[in-house]
Amino acid sequence: MRLGLVIDLDTCVGCHACAVACKEWNTSGTTGALTDYQPYGAKPSGVWFNRIRHYEIGEYPYNKTVNFPMSCMHCENAECVTVCPTGASYKRAEDGIVLVDQNKCMGCNYCSWACPYGARELDRASGTMKKCTLCIDRIYDMEIPEEERQPACVLTCPAHARMFGDFDDPESPVSRAVRERGGYQLMPELNYNPSNHYLPPRVHAPIPTEGMRKKAAAKVKAWVNRVVER
């Protein structure tokens, strides 16, 4: 198995619900807590497994806002695991999930240097590196209904912009979505072979904004404005 996520950049609305749901679930999960620094202070900051950035692509009038959620890509060539001197970082053979053993990590930051996607963040309170677990304490939990055995970010997404599944199965929904929608990996030139894939925005005709015929109501309004003096 090669578990991972597919992010649909066409439908993501950038609401950060996935990041909030992630933080809520994982702060009491196996690698919790996700410490906040000065949560009510002047400069709030803290540990997150999932961050959403927002970009403008293209030039006006063919430009578009793209919301860009990023978490651990659970790479096939996970350099973060290779460089770890303590053996705290490891990649599970059975499903490809990359994890950090909080009891072994010495907090040297080296794995975060090796990660191109910014997936790893040091928790200053525990002194250990923390990262997305793909909700491993949820997807294998036989106590919850089968349809809920998915990462918290996927379950919560109101736009259905996130999919979870097995990339080794060519007929899984994630494999099919990648095949049909031209899903791609980020920074393929670094050869980390990330599991997570991104679906590009669909191509839409731009909505015209200039040279439009005025509607009848607007014409009447303009005439009234002309004849009625204040």
């Binding site: 290779t82 770890c84 001197p85 303590t86 009891n103 072994k104 080296y110």
Partner: peptide, 20 residues
């Protein structure tokens, strides 16, 4: 430089892959 130096002794264990 270590945030959790009590585990520093483990840094000698992964010499097969890690230059550190």
């Amino acid at each position: 430089h270590l945030a959790n130096p009590k585990n520093a002794w483990r840094a000698f264990t992964r010499w097969r892959t890690s230059w550190l």
